[in-house]
Every structure is written in C-alpha cells, then in structure tokens.
C-alpha cells in the first residue's frame, strides 16, 4: 500500500489527483442537496409535536455530524502528518479546520433557531449545544494558531499537535458537559433526541447527511489544493499551471 501511496506524498501528484476527485464529490453533493432540501422542506410530514419547526433538523443534524466528521479527518491527518512526517497531511489539517468551524457554526445557529420556538429561548445550556460551542472554540483556536505562524510548515505542524491534543480532550469535554447538564438541568428533555423517526422523515435526513459529507470532501480538496499552490508557488509546475490558465484567459478575452 505504501508503494502505491508514496507518489501522492509529492505535491504535484496529489494536486492532480484531488483535482480529478473534486468533480465527483460535487456531483454527489449538489443533487443530494437539492433533493434532500426539497424533500425535507416540502414533502416530509410535519412532526406531530413540533410541527414544521422540526424541518431545521435537515441542516442541524448533518452539520453537527459533519463538524465531528471534519474533526476526525483532521485528527487522522494530523496523526499521519506527525508520525510519518508528511507535510501534505498537515496541509489537510489546515485545509479542513475552517470548514469544520463553519459546519459547527451552522449546527449552533440552527440549534438556537430551533430552540427559540421549542424552549422559548435562543440559547439554553443544553449538553449538545454546549459541547458544540466548545468544539467551535477549539476549531477557532486551531485556525488562529495556524494563522499566527508566518512559516506555514511550522504552522501546519503546530496546528496538527493542537488537533491531536484536542482529539483526546474533546470526548472528555463532551462527557463532562453531558454530566454537568444532567446535574444542573434535571428533567429537561432534549428536543434534538429523536428516538425513532418515521421513515419518510428519516430518508431526507440521510440524503442531507450524504450531501454535507460530500460537500465537506469537495471543500477539503479545494482548500487542500489552495494550500499546495501557495506553498509550492515557486515550483516550475505551478508556474506552468499559471501560465496555462492566463493564456487560456487571454485567448477567450
């Protein structure tokens, strides 16, 4: 496997490969997004308790899940990058963090917008919302650390270390917040818990999860390519790429 993987530790190879993969991710993300959204917003039956406000679930849950998914991606990439000293993996960490942060923000915001009609308040110290908020803090810390270094190789390594520290800490944080919450809130029912969903509610949710995951993949690849281009901007292959693109623009113009 290493023999097969090794060429992709070269920046140019991974740039081309990720460029080839990108359209496929987009081809999954866009149709599933449109179908899932229309299905979820217009065709899924209203919840018998929460009425139509439950339709926020079709972005809240996928965003929350993929925020965690993005963090796992970062953790795996950080581990690979630190253990095998692969810089491209460290670039993946840097490329993924902003997307994870945006997903976490979406999960938080939709959670609040859902909580307002359900709980009567924009913000309740619900265990899930609280740990999402902390996850957002962790994401922002990683991004801030990455941006603080001017040497991007060091920045990638520092961000990777912080990601790994975070991955040990996040389960503890989640566990502690859940426990703290049960102690302080007693009998409040978490509205996000859907013990058993009807199938015609569940299918659009699954479609949306697929869509969010594919979009995450697409954006990671796009940002990953940006990172490569930026760091390799003095290499001949990048210069050739730039010349090619500018000449094609000139022909059209």
């Amino acid at each position: 496997m290493w023999k097969w993987l090794h060429p992709y530790a070269k920046a140019e190879k991974s740039y081309t490969l990720s460029g080839k993969l990108m359209p496929w991710f987009l081809a999954v993300a866009l149709p599933t997004f449109i179908v899932g959204m229309i299905w979820g917003l217009a065709f899924a039956p209203a919840d018998y308790q929460q009425g139509d406000s439950f339709r926020i679930i079709y972005i809240h849950v996928p965003a929350a899940m993929m925020a965690m998914g993005a963090y796992s991606t970062m953790a795996i990439a950080a581990f690979i990058g630190l253990v095998w000293q692969i810089r491209l993996a460290e670039m993946t960490v840097a490329a993924t963090a902003p997307i994870g942060a945006v997903y976490t923000f979406i999960a938080l915001f939709t959670g609040a917008a859902w909580g307002k009609p359900m709980w009567g308040a924009w913000w309740v110290w619900d265990a899930r919302l609280t740990s999402e908020l902390i996850l957002l803090f962790v994401y922002l810390g990683i991004i801030a650390l990455y941006n603080a270094f001017s040497d991007k190789v060091l920045a990638g390594r520092a961000a990777s270390i912080l990601t790994l520290v975070g991955v040990i800490n996040l389960p503890i944080i989640h566990f502690s917040v859940v426990w703290w919450n049960t102690l302080h809130q007693g009998a409040t029912i978490t509205k996000f818990d859907q013990p058993s969903m009807a199938t015609d509610m569940l299918i659009p949710l699954l479609i949306m999860i697929v869509s969010f995951a594919a979009f995450l993949g697409f954006m990671v690849l796009y940002r990953f390519r940006n990172e490569i281009l930026q760091r390799e901007s003095h290499r001949p292959w990048v210069i050739a790429l730039v010349q090619q693109s500018s000449s094609s623009v000139n022909k059209r113009g």
Partner: peptide, 11 residues
C-alpha cells in the same frame, strides 16, 4: 406552520 421565521432564518 407558523414557524416560518425560525425555519427560513436557520436555512
């Protein structure tokens, strides 16, 4: 169903 503000705001 009366929740337009919240749903459309979230989306």
């Amino acid at each position: 169903g009366g929740y337009s503000f919240y749903v459309w705001l979230a989306y």
